[in-house]
């Protein structure tokens, strides 16, 4: 049986921030290979560069140097609209603070990335309904985010990330704003999605949650200092 194809490949990625003549090396020579269907945790202390790495993976930021190949396509120097299109089709984001849009219903929030894709309404409806069912939020489709608990909001955020069937789900501290019960529940949801074939890259500083992943990449001072494969 051949190993799954590489979905994300970083080679020599560095990220330097320039502020007031001070160079801050957020990432230095990162090499990373993530295969389809993998569940990878990026761990490290606060300020180590893990969120910067996730931003580069999510095409929210571009590396100062190095190459980034996503799904076989170099993406490190695309234009803004091209990056937006790839984010829309290939990447699903799950944020720490959910980032649901308060004025939109649960359904509309999940539908939002699909509307940017120009997907026909009927297809959108099917995709949204399916995503909400997957996360167990189908019954709250007409609610506003403010009417949901934190855990429920994060489930909706996961549904939004899932709805467009992205190549990879990027989760940035997905349990950071949740209590432990809701945090566990969301982690279980991600685990279930992974079992269903989803590729997940999760940033966390909590080793308890990192253990849910198959592989944990430890970052310190912008460098990969350790890779650890979890035994499940």
């Amino acid at each position: 049986m051949s190993s799954p194809a590489s979905l994300i490949k970083l080679e020599g990625v560095t990220k330097v921030f320039l502020t007031d003549e001070v160079e801050t090396h957020a990432l230095s020579g990162i090499h990373l290979d993530i295969r389809q269907g993998e569940y990878v945790a990026i761990a490290g202390p606060s300020g180590c560069g893990k969120s910067t790495l996730l931003s580069i993976l999510g095409l929210l930021d571009s590396p100062t140097d190095g190459t980034y190949v996503l799904n076989g396509r170099p993406v490190q120097s695309l234009s803004l609209p091209e990056r937006a299109r790839i984010r829309n089709r290939e990447i699903g984001f799950i944020f720490q603070s959910f980032n649901l849009i308060g004025d939109l219903t649960v359904y509309e929030n999940v539908e939002l990335p699909l509307t940017y894709r120009g997907m026909p309404a009927a297809e959108r409806k099917a995709a949204v309904t399916s995503a909400l069912e997957k996360v167990g939020m189908g019954h709250r489709a007409k609610h506003l985010p403010s009417q949901l608990s934190g855990g429920q909001q994060q489930r909706v955020a996961v549904a939004r990330a899932l709805a467009g069937s992205p190549a990879v789900l990027l989760a940035d501290e997905p349990t950071g704003n949740l209590d432990s019960k809701n945090g566990d529940s969301v982690m279980q949801l991600l685990a279930d999605l992974h079992k269903g074939g989803a590729t997940i890259v999760m940033v966390t500083h909590d080793t308890r949650f990192a253990r849910h992943a198959e592989r944990t990449i430890h970052i310190f001072d912008g460098r990969v200092v350790q890779e650890q494969v979890e035994q499940h």
Binding site: G58, L60, A84, R87, N88, R89, F93, N99, I101, Y116
Partner: peptide, 12 residues
């Protein structure tokens, strides 16, 4: 919110 929308793929 606009940042979220753009992160989700909204073009200019």
């Amino acid at each position: 919110e606009i940042g979220v929308r753009m992160a989700l793929g909204a073009e200019p």
